[in-house]
Simulated assay, not measured.
Amino acid sequence: MIAVHFDKPGGPENLYLKEVAKPSPGEGEVLLKVAASALNRADLLQRQGQYAPPPGASNILGLEASGHVAELGAGYQGPWKVGDPAMVLLSGGGQAQYVTVPAELLMPIPAGLTMCQAAAIPEAWLTAFQLLHLVGNVQAGDSVLIHAGASGVGTAAIQLARMVGATPLVTAGSQQKLQRAEKLGAAAGFNYKEEDFSEATLKFTKVQADAGEGFHRANSAPLLHGGPSTLTAGSGQSLPRG
């Protein structure tokens, strides 16, 4: 099969297509014929030599993909059948013609989405959905502070927050990124390199000043830091900043 490959770390000019062995699904796995694969920051960092795949993962780029089930692993008794369309979250290997994946990680593609759109859902959009709804329980009327508002997770979180009637606020490191976030629905944006985003957020949301200390901790906090009126969602990733 053909896969995206690089021999040495660097820019996109180092990428090329290479013939590699087609993987075979093991027990509990399926083989997905890839139709589309999205690009994530981890892919860029891996290409630059700044991020190593998890132990046992494919060294081929690609953390999410969409396609059709091409083969079932030995003894598989689940609901998936050869030919079924699916999208999937991966530890690597998505930027190839085929990828093996544990069957439980396959997800049906929502009606109305193209293969290209579906390939961009599992990593960023499901992460944002998990943070906002499963962890943060965001409701209509809430204010949501989203760090890295122009990132993949950030842009998804802005739109998901708007869908439930919450007010998304963002931080970013440049005016260009803030403008991008505001075009997607951010009510306000704060450049953390130029201003104290905690004070700006408190002013915007009219939260009492004694609740502000939580925002000062937000940059180094876990994924979510909640307050009575405001929820802060950051990337929380251990990947180095570019």
Rank of each mutant, 00 (worst) to 15 (best):
F190M: 05
D210A: 12
E199C: 10
S220N: 12
T205L: 06
V207G: 00
N191K: 01
D196Q: 04
A187R: 02
F204V: 01
N219P: 14
D210L: 09
S220D: 14
T205R: 14
G189M: 04
H216R: 15
A218H: 05
D210V: 04
K206H: 12
R217I: 03
L202R: 09
S198N: 08
G185M: 07
P222K: 07
A209W: 03
F190Y: 06
S198W: 00
A209C: 04
A187P: 15
N219W: 01
E194N: 09
G214D: 11
A188M: 06
S220A: 05
D210I: 03
A188Q: 09
F197P: 12
A187I: 08
A186Y: 08
K206F: 07
E199H: 12
A221V: 14
F190K: 06
F204P: 08
E194G: 10
F190G: 10
G214S: 07
G212T: 13
E213L: 11
T201N: 08
N191V: 00
T201F: 00
K203G: 09
S198R: 09
V207Y: 00
E194Q: 15
V207H: 01
A218M: 06
G189H: 03
F204Q: 11
P222L: 13
Q208L: 11
A186K: 04
F197V: 00
A218Q: 10
V207T: 11
V207P: 00
P222C: 04
E199M: 11
A186N: 05
Q208Y: 06
A200P: 05
A218V: 12
F190N: 09
K193P: 05
G212E: 06
E194H: 08
A211R: 06
L202H: 01
F190V: 07
A211V: 10
Q208W: 11
A221E: 10
G185L: 07
A186H: 10
A186C: 11
A221D: 12
F204I: 01
Y192V: 05
T205N: 04
A187G: 10
A188Y: 04
A211I: 03
A188V: 09
Y192H: 12
E195R: 05
A186V: 02
S198P: 11
F215E: 09
D196K: 05
N219H: 07
V207W: 01
G185V: 15
S198H: 03
